Amino acid sequence: MTGFFHETAFYGSDDGFLAHAVPFVEAGLRAAEPTVVACGEQNAGLLRGALGSGTGVMYLPGADQYARPSEAIANYRALFAEHTVSGARQMRVVGDVPHPGTGAPWDWWARYEAAVNLAYAEFPVWGLCPYDTRTTPADVLADVVRTHPNIATAPGEHEVNPGYREGPAASRQVPDVLEQSAPLIEMVDPSAGAVREAVGTAIETISLSEDDAHDVVYAASEIVTNGLTHGVAPVRFRLWADEARVVVAVTDHGPGPSDPLVGLMPTTETLSAGLGLWILHRTCDYVSMGRDADGFTVRASVGSQS
């Protein structure tokens, strides 16, 4: 095969998961293809029990591999490149992508599922993304259908997905729970320096680590700079916080970036917003980007849920 074969499968029981995943993994092992399992503890345990030990499967802890979309892409690309250089003609990956049913916000993972069609296109990889219908919300399942060119309609049956739609996933701007209160800071068309000073003062009493505090100030400054440089005025900056977490949001009236990979992969184009947004995606605990009735908003959160 050539390029990335991106496939999903839906299941509603542990046996249903194994019916899709076990033949997929076993076929890769028989063909001596590098085969990766990056699943949560439950599904990884099911596969270990079904396949036995010493099979040659590379198990990656799902919580680590899917900590952030940008990290998942960077780690997978490095792994795929390593095996390609070593002569692999095809690789296989079965992975549990996080979603609200597993306790993770979905927007940036929806972007991930759409973006990897481009991000992994240069590698001969067959990626299987199984989703548990017992825990996956209906709107997430709809996004999964739209972002996967191929679908396993039944174990062993691999078909072109008629529901696939090329391009970025639709963004749903979901305000953070902290946004139910009035913002601690609200500024219109501020300079990046003014934002850094205001944010630094506002978070002095919040229980953040030194790294998290630095990440908040950087995120606020970078998002405002992108809005002022690439967006359409007015650019509105807001900040909310509780005892251990900070949320910043910047809204402008432009269309937002056209690159579906922006923030998820680094860029060498110094005049684009890609590099700064990529750093945000590597350091913040959550980043969402999209349009709603108020305009185009970039939202980032840092810190632990109280």
Results as ranks from 00 to 15, higher is better:
residue 44 A to R: 06
residue 288 S to N: 10
residue 5 F to S: 10
residue 251 T to Y: 08
residue 234 P to E: 03
residue 189 D to N: 11
residue 305 Q to D: 15
residue 275 L to Q: 15
residue 72 A to F: 09
residue 86 S to D: 15
residue 221 S to L: 06
residue 242 D to V: 11
residue 290 G to N: 07
residue 2 T to N: 05
residue 198 A to G: 11
residue 287 V to S: 01
residue 224 V to F: 02
residue 4 F to Q: 14
residue 135 T to R: 03
residue 37 V to E: 08
residue 262 V to P: 01
residue 123 F to M: 03
residue 140 V to R: 00
residue 139 D to L: 01
residue 42 Q to D: 03
residue 167 G to T: 10
residue 180 Q to N: 13
residue 162 P to L: 01
residue 16 G to R: 01
residue 62 G to A: 04
residue 120 Y to S: 04
residue 153 T to G: 09
residue 4 F to G: 09
residue 180 Q to A: 13
residue 202 A to S: 09
residue 54 G to D: 08
residue 252 D to H: 03
residue 254 G to R: 06
residue 2 T to A: 06
residue 282 R to A: 02
residue 88 A to F: 07
residue 306 S to T: 14
residue 67 A to P: 09
residue 235 V to P: 09
residue 91 M to V: 10
residue 183 P to T: 08
residue 215 D to Y: 10
residue 36 V to I: 14
residue 248 V to Q: 02
residue 126 W to F: 12
residue 95 G to R: 01
residue 293 A to K: 14
residue 142 A to S: 09
residue 96 D to I: 03
residue 90 Q to M: 10
residue 118 L to E: 05
residue 156 G to F: 02
residue 246 V to Q: 06
residue 100 P to Y: 00
residue 291 R to M: 12
residue 264 L to E: 04
residue 152 A to M: 10
residue 247 V to Q: 02
residue 149 P to R: 00
residue 14 D to H: 08
residue 293 A to Y: 10
residue 238 R to Q: 12
residue 36 V to W: 02
residue 223 I to P: 04
residue 67 A to C: 13
residue 150 N to D: 10
residue 159 E to A: 05
residue 145 V to F: 01
residue 20 H to C: 10
residue 155 P to Y: 01
residue 221 S to C: 07
residue 219 A to V: 01
residue 26 E to A: 07
residue 263 G to H: 08
residue 148 H to E: 12
residue 125 V to G: 10
residue 283 T to I: 03
residue 260 P to C: 01
residue 271 L to C: 05
residue 293 A to Q: 15
residue 174 V to A: 02
residue 63 A to K: 14
residue 32 A to V: 07
residue 76 Y to I: 11
residue 200 G to N: 13
residue 167 G to F: 06
residue 62 G to V: 07
residue 197 E to F: 13
residue 211 D to E: 12
residue 137 P to L: 00
residue 105 P to N: 00
residue 296 F to V: 08
residue 179 E to T: 08
residue 159 E to P: 00
residue 222 E to P: 07
residue 205 T to Q: 11
residue 44 A to E: 14
residue 13 S to Y: 01
residue 228 L to E: 15
residue 293 A to M: 12
residue 106 W to Q: 04
residue 87 G to N: 14
residue 93 V to A: 04
residue 12 G to E: 11
residue 68 R to H: 00
residue 226 N to G: 05
residue 151 I to K: 03
residue 3 G to D: 00
residue 294 D to M: 15
residue 237 F to K: 11
residue 135 T to K: 02
residue 75 N to L: 14
residue 245 R to P: 05
residue 271 L to H: 08
residue 253 H to R: 13
residue 74 A to C: 04
residue 9 A to W: 05
residue 222 E to L: 11
residue 278 W to Y: 12
residue 200 G to P: 12
residue 99 H to K: 00
residue 1 M to D: 06
residue 203 I to F: 13
residue 250 V to E: 11
residue 67 A to K: 12
residue 95 G to D: 04
residue 187 M to V: 08
residue 11 Y to S: 07
residue 10 F to H: 06
residue 120 Y to G: 05
residue 304 S to T: 12
residue 175 P to D: 10
residue 223 I to W: 00
residue 15 D to S: 15
residue 43 N to C: 03
